[in-house]
């Protein structure tokens, strides 16, 4: 089913005390597409990510992944079931090597326990081997294979961003959520990264992308959802979004009511 929905967000609302961070937001992601989630600062993009990955519990509304509700699932269970993410402010494991960081991701699908490890049972060997193979593959894909034994803390900023994506991909997700992966990049680096994201999709992943830079989002995404002040104000193809007056108003910082 090429058009099957992998993730459905239905009337999602999130309140913190008196503040409504997300207000009745609904959208879905189709299998194999790159969906952009955009909006001005404080629009609720990262909050939306956090709700999907289980960091926040929705006040109301539901999120279902591959037809199954995520309500009540723990964060690691959500990851194991096939949603992986990166972080807006990089959160690698600084004292671990690049390779080990990716291995932690790969371990999400493994079940080696202390006994298998202690007695080097076949399961440990099998999973360790598969994990290493996959991790090196991903590092190569990200151009980081020469730095596999480097500590994550010692990698350059750009390498750290790419390592985060590799780590997320290693969990073998169906849906991968990238939270401003191009933050802090120059235009040239951004272009390279967008090519990379397309390649990620071509490998069979569905991508949910938060990005600030409108131009880049337009270039890489199949569809775009626009948030403003916690509400969805538009949804459509890049071309439709570009011409949407509400989006233009939001990005120019003019309230619709004021403009009219």
């Amino acid at each position: 089913m090429p058009d099957a929905h992998i993730l459905e967000v239905d009337q999602l609302t999130l309140r913190f005390g008196g503040l409504t961070a997300l207000d009745n937001v609904s959208f879905d992601i189709k299998e194999g597409e790159i969906l952009g989630l955009i909006g001005p600062n404080g629009a609720g993009k990262t909050t939306c990510f956090n709700a999907i990955t289980g960091v926040y519990k929705p006040t109301s509304g539901t999120i279902s992944f591959r037809g199954e509700s995520l309500a009540g699932k723990k964060r690691f269970e959500i990851t194991q079931s096939g949603i992986a993410r990166t972080f807006q402010n990089i959160r690698l494991f600084p004292t671990m090597t690049a390779l080990e960081n990716v291995l932690v991701g790969a371990d999400a699908q493994h079940s080696t326990g202390i006994l298998s490890a202690l007695f080097r049972l076949p399961k440990h060997r099998r999973e360790e081997e598969a994990g290493h193979r996959r991790a090196m593959e991903l590092l190569r894909f990200m151009g980081l294979h020469t730095k596999a034994d480097e500590l994550a803390a010692n990698l350059s900023y750009g390498d750290q961003r790419r390592l985060e994506i590799a780590r997320a991909m290693a969990t073998n997700p169906k849906l991968i959520c990238l939270d401003e992966p191009a933050a802090g990049f120059n235009p040239q680096e951004k272009r390279v990264l967008m090519d990379l994201i397309r390649k990620v999709r071509d490998q069979g992943f569905t991508v949910l992308l938060i990005e600030h830079d409108m131009r880049l989002v337009m270039g890489v995404t199949d569809r775009i959802v626009v948030l403003e002040f916690g509400k969805k104000i538009a949804e459509g193809t890049p071309a439709e979004i570009r011409d949407n007056p509400a989006v233009i108003a939001a990005y120019l910082g003019v309230e619709e009511e004021d403009a009219s």
């Binding site: 690691f76 990851t79 992986a84 494991f93 997320a168």
Partner: peptide
């Protein structure tokens, strides 16, 4: 035993948890 356990999924999970518990959880580490 310490060496064998440390160099495995278990050891990595411990280290990841120590470094950043939330990130570890979101990377599928219980």
């Amino acid at each position: 035993a310490d060496y064998l356990i440390k160099n495995s999924r278990v050891g990595r999970a411990w280290e990841a948890t120590r470094e950043d518990e939330d990130a570890a959880e979101l990377m599928g580490v219980p």
